[in-house]
């Protein structure tokens, strides 16, 4: 009993120790190289009270939501069709595997040609970063739906629409949530990449402005913010998954 509660508290201890180590390294090294955790926190606090940080996060999240929604609306149905219909899979698989093998960042010069340096291009990068990830996971999941489930519905002469509504969609929810979760985390990475590599904007601009002034406290603060957004995105989807998929819970 004592042992289990000891292990349950270890992550908290580990995070505290890590922050302590960050503080220590920051205090010992010159401020142009590495700032302590407290300095990063004070920077974030200052940026929050002047509304610079909340505005940047808000604009970043808007780009994120637009690109992510666009990608999900196409990727999930297409992936589902690829997973369930054999000829669609064979037709699209080689081309999509090829495009998926190209690192998303490599598209940036091409996207600049098409969409310029600003908001449209940022959304396009977010779409490319998360679209293929969601497509691949959905297609793989839809292929592995237990055929016995569909057979039961067929043997009771369920019409096609009912097979989809009562069997296929509930059976797909687990991997659809996986696709949405991994896609969202990738989309967060896409926003930051876009804001740094195109014309600097929002959080990326904060990061590059801090870099330009050798303000390592600012840089580390923004990195911590990005990490928190990534974690929050993942936890949000995990929470949603637990609520929707009550029957999957152990």
């Amino acid at each position: 009993m004592i042992r289990t509660s000891f292990i349950a508290w270890l992550p908290v201890f580990s995070i505290a120790a890590g922050l302590g180590l960050w503080e220590l390294i920051g205090r010992l090294s010159p401020p142009v190289l590495f700032a302590p955790a407290s300095a990063a926190f004070l920077f974030l606090l200052h940026q929050t009270t002047t509304w610079v940080l909340p505005a940047a996060i808000g604009h970043s999240l808007l780009t994120l939501a637009t690109g992510y929604t666009l990608a999900a609306v196409v990727a999930l149905p297409l992936g589902f069709a690829m997973g369930r219909v054999a000829w669609v899979h064979e037709l699209l698989h080689p081309v999509l595997t090829g495009i998926y093998a190209i690192p998303p960042a490599a598209f940036i010069p091409f996207l600049i040609v098409w969409f310029g340096l600003f908001a449209q291009s940022r959304v396009a990068i977010v779409v490319i970063m998360c679209f293929f990830e969601m497509l691949v996971i959905t297609a793989a999941g839809a292929r592995t739906i237990d055929p016995r489930l569909v057979d039961v519905a067929r043997s009771f002469l369920a019409p096609r629409r009912r097979v989809i509504g009562a069997v296929l969609i509930p059976a797909s929810l687990p991997f659809l949530f996986t696709a949405l979760r991994i896609g969202l985390v990738r989309a967060v990475a896409g926003v930051i990449t876009a804001e740094l590599l195109l014309s600097p904007a929002n959080l990326g601009k904060q990061l590059l402005d801090s870099a330009g002034r050798f303000n390592t406290a600012g840089m580390l603060g923004v990195i911590a913010t990005v990490a928190m957004i990534g974690l929050a995105a993942q936890q949000l989807l995990r929470w949603l998954e637990r609520h929707v998929l009550r029957w999957e819970r152990p």
């Binding site: 992550p11 990061l207 990005v226 990490a227």
Partner: peptide, 24 residues
């Protein structure tokens, strides 16, 4: 218990964000 919180934080952190400070 000690390492998982850190690994799962870093895995969702875009490496692009770390690039500027790495350059420094």
């Amino acid at each position: 218990a000690l390492l998982h919180p850190w690994v799962s934080t870093f895995v969702v952190t875009s490496v692009a964000a770390i690039v500027p400070i790495l350059i420094l």
